[in-house]
């Protein structure tokens, strides 16, 4: 098996002046091409986890390996950061330049890439997030979703192998959220890049291959979104509610309907309920 893109061995991180560690012995392995969602409440350690993934924070115990490189090794810092790109919550505070394309060019310029090659990368990154037509616009005149897509393009221009999105939709309206999420999914389909999506919206996790639930600095649950969301009681114990689709299925089951709990998308959920209602008569008698 190839070297995992991200490997965390028993990673802990305690902020200065904090009593409790924000991350408490997290071990995790991500293979190249994975699409992982990390779910958790505020203070569950999910943002700290994100910051450990490209050496913004160095773990106080344990180690993080990015494509085999230890984040504690300062000489590999640039290589680590160009391998794992990071997108943050507030798009306004990530954009450095006054023109969209100049902003996207920022990272490759820092890396000393040839001017002509930068041009190629910038155009490609902007097309990947569907913002090419806006390349000459001023970022502050764009919508939140558009700005966040610019921020994603700014990271893509580094040609990273993995992209970590730390609550990229938290400050956006529903339209912006949809724009950003569909850009992320599109990106994943077209390039097969490793994606780590950190969020507290259940619905955003549905499309991931793997869902990690964080609580109090530890990994509380880890599995496919279907498997995790089916454990409605366990989620409730962590103070999280399952997506509306699963909640509906769960309460119908409590009523005695024989439904699967893993129909996460609205279409699948409707399908499951319809299938139940259409089931051959006689197998079940409690239908009104």
């Amino acid at each position: 098996m190839s070297v995992p893109i991200l490997q965390l061995d028993n990673v802990s991180y305690t902020y200065e002046e904090a009593r409790r560690p924000a991350l408490d012995g997290v071990s995790l392995t991500l293979q190249a091409g994975d699409f992982v969602a990390v779910l958790g409440h505020n203070g569950s350690g999910k943002s700290t986890l994100a910051k450990c993934l490209n050496a913004i924070l160095r773990p106080t115990a344990g180690r993080v390996l990015v494509d085999g490189m230890d984040t504690a090794d300062p000489s590999r810092l640039l290589d680590i950061r160009r391998t794992v790109g990071m997108v943050f919550q507030n798009p306004d505070n990530q954009i450095v330049a006054s023109v969209v394309e100049d902003d996207v060019a920022f990272a490759p310029e820092n890396l000393g890439v040839e001017p002509r090659e930068i041009r190629v990368r910038v155009d490609e990154a902007l097309r990947q997030v569907g913002m090419y037509e806006f390349r000459l616009h001023a970022p502050h005149l764009l919508s939140g979703g558009q700005k966040q897509r610019i921020a994603i393009a700014g990271v893509l221009a580094m040609r990273p192998r993995c992209i970590v999105l730390d609550e990229p939709t938290a400050m956006l309206d529903p339209v912006g959220r949809r724009e950003v999420l569909s850009a992320v999914r599109q990106l994943r389909r077209s390039s097969g890049m490793t994606v780590v999506l950190i969020t507290h919206h259940m619905e955003e996790c549905i499309y991931a291959d793997r869902l990690i639930v964080m609580s109090e600095g530890r990994i509380a649950m880890d599995g496919s979104p279907r498997a995790v969301f089916s454990q409605v009681e366990a989620l409730r114990a962590l103070g999280l509610t399952a997506p509306e689709t699963v909640s509906l299925l769960h309460s119908l089951r409590a009523e005695g309907w024989d439904l699967p709990l893993d129909a996460l998308r609205v279409e699948d959920c409707a399908e499951a309920i319809a299938a139940y209602l259409r089931r051959p008569r006689g197998t079940d008698t409690d239908l009104e």
Binding site: R81, M86, F88, Q94, V96, N110, L111, M158
Partner: peptide, 10 residues
């Protein structure tokens, strides 16, 4: 936040 984002972009 900007400083962190800039560092992330090398």
């Amino acid at each position: 936040e900007l400083a962190t984002a800039m560092e992330c972009r090398c």
